[in-house]
Nucleic acid binder design. Structure first.
Lengths: 343, 343
DNA sequence: TTGTAGGCGTTATCAT
DNA sequence: ATGATAACGCCTACAA
């Protein structure tokens, strides 16, 4: 493979000039640039990124760390990140943890090792370096998305989970529902807590008393939504609607309802959260809150670009909150005359 | 950040010894290793990956190029790749093309630029370097998945789309269906052609004549499945079952059927392809062909690791074909007495 | 506007 | 088992 020296020789200039022609063309005479470009085309030259990176102390890689990418929410998020990375000569390195803390720490170490310049986290766990920040030394650039550490001032992007959840419950209450169940995410996640709190807020606003019997915990998967609905039905506490903390669980819950011979929304209204495309094509189409997931990824990447700016030109770490909106489809309807009591 | 020289100084050895302690510990006396490790812990040393890469001419990155990652099929595939990359000290660099050929060529150039050691393609387009291979010079390591170029001997992994599609049609025919429609993927894709050919094969095996009126093209999205079903219904040609070339389109088709007040499977049987999790929780649960998508990703990454081996120890490029299986759920049933004729 | 040269942090070859 | 040292390919003062 040709290198910059070969180009210099063929174009009859010095390596410095070639380098400048490539990175600061304004500093090089146009005719010289032409000669250099001819040589580059001739020798099929491609700058060695590692050599440049070593010199500049920059890898131009962002590490995106997620528990798993095999679900539509995460992949929409990553798509957003890639969208803006691409326009900034940055690349995304994928890091999957499967929830493993060690893996997360290994990924964090990649920043010190110059494999990546910074890290975007869609994770509930925090790397050790944030939990026990080293006395001296600076922290690596980290942006957190959706799930955020309560006591760290990381740049972060999310939606207003609290109000969004309340919005769903208000919609249900507006339809006449009073017995509204909830299927939450893993309750140790701040995001799940926020959505649960929003559910309670919505209840309160409608003057409905909170009944702990009506809330069941899931883990954001289809199956967990199915299981939660089965538990809800078996418990026998009457309810006419259920607000699920994401669309996957809502779809799982609808599946369980169907398996029990119950109709959505005639017997039970079901609402989700996130607005996955699959929800729109479900039978019946799912009422949900639209979460601008791709945009969340884009915003996260922009925050990362900010964090990567030279220290003097760097804006302060900030929190971006993107707008949500309720999407009413056919899985929610007016409260039925008779009430489902399970089994 | 400390470097190998600092470690050498603190541990009282040469840089060469430190380097060996890290990469070939067997060549270093245990007591020396201890001293070195102490120094590493002391100074919080992290080897600079770019420097090592520059020297070894290896980035340890695989570039995974996909049209978009925002769909369950692709993300399952990428998850598989990451699974095995992680256990081989390799990282996956994500490249999204949105179907753009230029983007694809830009990604390919990254290999020459040492940003990645090779490329795994889940793409219908081929990079120019494969279409017009340079007379001299070797081709970069490329593995292709699912969609493959007919006239190139790239290492590749796929399933037997032909037989798998035929299997679905046989299942439908076994249920008594004779008027079986098809919703295909973009017909310029080899994979779509294979699945369509399999559909015809299944028809032939059941002694059913092929009717071009019953095949409609989609683009693998939910909406395109919906639209294809609408066209099918509006065309008025009677049919009692439809075999869709992927689950997304099948789900979209079911949604259209529902919108027209038709029941699945009472009026029309619907079958998909891929076995997305969402299919299992649809109403009704979707009959489909299981495609081992995560495993396809894993196999692709293993082929890549082979291709990255030193030339002398390199196995010949091969094609891996993974097994599929039919999954019968509730969206297919015996042919109804009356036949749906559309509108 | 262009050239010279030092150094980024490793690995690997060749000695010892 | 260990040490000295020359690359790897580029960028960027500094000089001209």
């Amino acid at each position: 493979m040709a290198n910059i020296k070969d180009i210099a020789r063929v174009a009859g200039v010095s390596v410095a000039t070639v380098s400048r022609a490539l990175s600061t063309p304004s500093m090089v005479r146009p005719t010289t640039i032409e000669r250099i470009e001819a040589a580059i085309a001739d020798l099929n030259y491609q700058p060695n990124h590692m050599a440049a990176g070593l010199r500049r102390q920059r890898s131009d890689n962002v590490l995106v760390v997620v528990p798993s990418i095999y679900n539509p929410f995460t992949s929409a998020f990553v798509e957003g990140i890639e969208n803006v990375a691409r326009t900034s000569r940055m690349r995304v390195l994928l890091g999957i943890t499967e929830g493993d803390r060690d893996a997360l720490n290994t990924y964090t170490a990649m920043i010190a090792g110059k494999q990546a310049d910074g890290m975007i986290l869609l994770e509930s766990n925090l790397p050790d370096i944030l939990i026990n920040p080293p006395a001296k030394g600076t922290l690596p650039p980290i942006v957190s998305a959706c799930e955020y550490p309560l006591d760290h001032a990381l740049p972060r992007v999310k939606i207003d989970n609290h109000e969004a959840s309340a919005l769903v419950v208000s919609h249900l209450a507006g339809l006449g529902h009073r017995r509204i169940a909830a299927v939450t995410g893993p309750i140790d996640l701040v995001m799940s807590q926020d959505r649960l709190a929003g559910y309670r807020l919505g209840l309160a606003r409608a003057g409905i008393e909170f009944d702990p019997q009506l809330v069941h915990e899931g883990d954001f998967t289809l199956q967990s939504g199915y299981d939660a609905m089965v538990r809800l039905l078996d418990a026998g506490t009457p309810f006419t609607a259920v607000a699920c903390s994401n669309d996957e669980m809502a779809l799982g819950a609808m599946s369980a309802l169907r398996a029990r011979g119950l109709s959505v929304p005639d017997d039970v209204s079901v609402a989700g959260f996130d607005d996955l495309r699959f929800g729109a094509y479900a039978s019946p189409p799912l009422t949900t809150v639209h979460s601008p997931t791709v945009e969340i990824g884009e915003a996260a990447m922009r925050l990362m670009l900010d964090a990567l700016l030279p220290a003097d030109r760097q804006p302060p770490a900030r929190e971006v909150i993107l707008p949500h909106r309720l999407i009413v489809r056919e899985s929610t309807a007016r409260v039925p005359a008779r009430v489902v009591a399970g089994t």
